[in-house]
């Protein structure tokens, strides 16, 4: 079981970056423990989260959005047979992404292609940037 509360706006990562090499061993061990790996991006309209989840289909994934977090849960199936080599991870996994902006939960979408999960979380209208013209008198 891997529980990991890192990822979005994660303060320890910023410390790692500041500390330079000091964080590298930590990052190396952490990189192994984190499953699935995530790419998190943001544009004006939405937050886009992509995860590498090979071997999991959409039915085996549980994606939950709360006010502050996106939780990605699932389980990697165990291959049946007599093992000669086992490198692929198995078992349940969970990752929590902390969201710092309100999300329009009803319009969130998730798609899966070639083992890559893409979650698009549209930002709530209230927080999108708007241009307001102020009349100067």
């Amino acid at each position: 079981m891997v529980i990991d509360f890192s990822a979005f706006y994660e303060f320890p990562n910023l410390l790692d970056r500041l500390a330079g090499d000091a964080g590298r061993t930590l990052a190396a061990t952490r990189g192994r423990a984190q499953f699935p790996p995530l790419n998190i991006g943001e544009d004006d309209a939405a937050i886009r989260v992509r995860a590498l989840v090979p071997g999991v289909d959409m039915d085996g994934l549980d994606i939950t959005i709360t006010d502050k977090t996106l939780v990605l849960k699932g389980e990697l199936p165990v291959v049946r047979g007599r093992y000669y080599r086992q490198e692929r991870p198995t078992g349940p996994f969970q990752r929590v992404v902390t969201l710092n902006v309100p999300i329009d939960r009803d319009r969130a979408t998730a798609t899966m292609k070639d083992g890559v999960l893409e979650i698009v979380l549209p930002k709530a209208q209230a927080v999108r940037p708007r241009t307001v013209h102020i009349e100067v008198r």
Binding site: L52, V53, P54, G55, V79, R80, G81, R82, Y83, Y84, R85, Q86, E87, R88, P89, D114, G115, V116
Partner: peptide, 22 residues
């Protein structure tokens, strides 16, 4: 890629994690 190799009655099965490959 990370690989699993198992043997079953009908032969060997090799599983390779290659996410993102079309």
């Amino acid at each position: 890629p990370q690989a699993d190799l198992v043997e079953r009655e009908d032969g060997f099965h090799l599983f390779l994690d290659m996410p993102g490959v079309a």
